[in-house]
Design a protein around this nucleic acid. Structure first.
Lengths: 207, 207
DNA sequence: TAGATTGTTAATCGATTAACAATC
DNA sequence: TAGATTGTTAATCGATTAACAATC
């Protein structure tokens, strides 16, 4: 079950989303064929994937939706709430703290951090904005493993260094920069500009 | 030069970003070895990629940074400003219209659209919020090919249908749903929840 | 039991890496 | 010229798809 490939990891949340939807629709079991049709994958790939992350089906019957959903939730790690903090109380930071579906799937923002005097002390969607200078202290006093970097690019690396030295283990990075991090810290980038440029390329290279 | 694979398309904006940075640093030419070191790719892959999208180097010398940057900008399609609209004036929509770096790389938001009476008529970062009911009319009167879907999930598909029937050719989708679109329309998804879940998986499966 | 569908092995496909002659 | 480095072909690696025996 260990050593799940990158390709499979990227599909995991999509499995979760589709299974959740099916559960809501009252579907109790589903074949690799039908699940593949919903997700845009081949039945073969569905079966390979599910075997890799350790789900179990039944011949002639398919996969039990609820069991599979619970199993995936468990390996993703969203069965219990995980705390996070957001560095940068600007547009992106504000959008993330306000994006309610994160709460649904088990993530809770404890605090935001910014350098702007106007923002410090205020609340955004009920979450307090603290000064960046208190970042280390805050992390020492709270159980947080996930941090969101939504600050300007030129501060991102130094913020990351502070986070790492205060025991943050996962960084969700919105700054358009490749952070230098130790192997013991995981990172997922959301490079919005690059995503939009990808769209632009596809638009300008339509056949 | 045509039929650039998905893998290469995803790397294109990263090439652009790194080359732009190098140009600012005053680097005039670079070898596949050094570029690979900066981008975290092998020299082999750099050379393969550049050949695929039609750049040109010189043996014994490397690649001219400015030429390559201009070439990539051209095939991405960001040499001239491209208009876009945003559907949904909520958290995500607000963050995107405010994200100034999009303007730097040639994207201009002409208008936002929402259903909320409170938001309609107001301006966000200088951009007017129009009622969704005027979407079709607006698209008939303006040259826009790119639309951002940042509305609630349950409205996303019907919005997409309106966009498609009014000649939008590229959709940047932030709703957690797989849109059904004709082949003549390109789409890039930004599924934030899935991205965060990926981070969670990696955090919870660290060795 | 018969039909459906999994689990898993083998085959294929595509992407990455290695190698090296060409050449600046 | 000699050294560096590309462009490109071949080798490798990994991911996806196909096939089919096992079995519910």
């Amino acid at each position: 079950m260990n050593n799940i490939s990158d390709a499979v990891i990227k599909r995991l949340p999509s499995y979760y989303r589709h299974l959740e939807k099916m559960l809501k629709e009252g579907i109790t079991h589903i074949s690799s064929y039908d699940l593949g049709k919903r997700m845009g994958l081949t039945p073969s790939q569905i079966r390979q994937d599910i075997n890799i992350f350790g789900g179990a089906g039944r011949q002639g019957y398919g996969y039990p939706v609820q069991d599979l959903l619970e199993h995936i939730a468990k390996i993703i790690g969203i069965t219990k709430t995980q705390n996070m903090i957001i560095i940068g109380a600007g547009n992106i930071g504000g959008a993330i703290v306000g994006y309610s579906s994160f709460i649904d799937s088990g993530f809770k923002t404890l605090a935001m951090f910014d350098v702007s005097e106007e923002k410090i002390g205020k609340k955004i969607k009920g979450v307090i904005v603290e000064p960046v200078s208190k970042l280390g202290e805050f992390l020492n006093n709270n159980d947080v493993k996930i941090a969101v970097i939504a600050c300007p690019e030129n501060q991102a690396q130094s913020i990351a260094d502070i986070l790492v030295s205060n025991n943050i283990k996962a960084i969700w990075n919105f700054a358009p920069i490749d952070l230098i991090l130790p192997d013991s810290v995981v990172c997922v980038n959301v490079h919005l500009s690059e995503s939009l440029q990808q769209l632009s390329f596809r638009l300008n290279n339509l056949i």
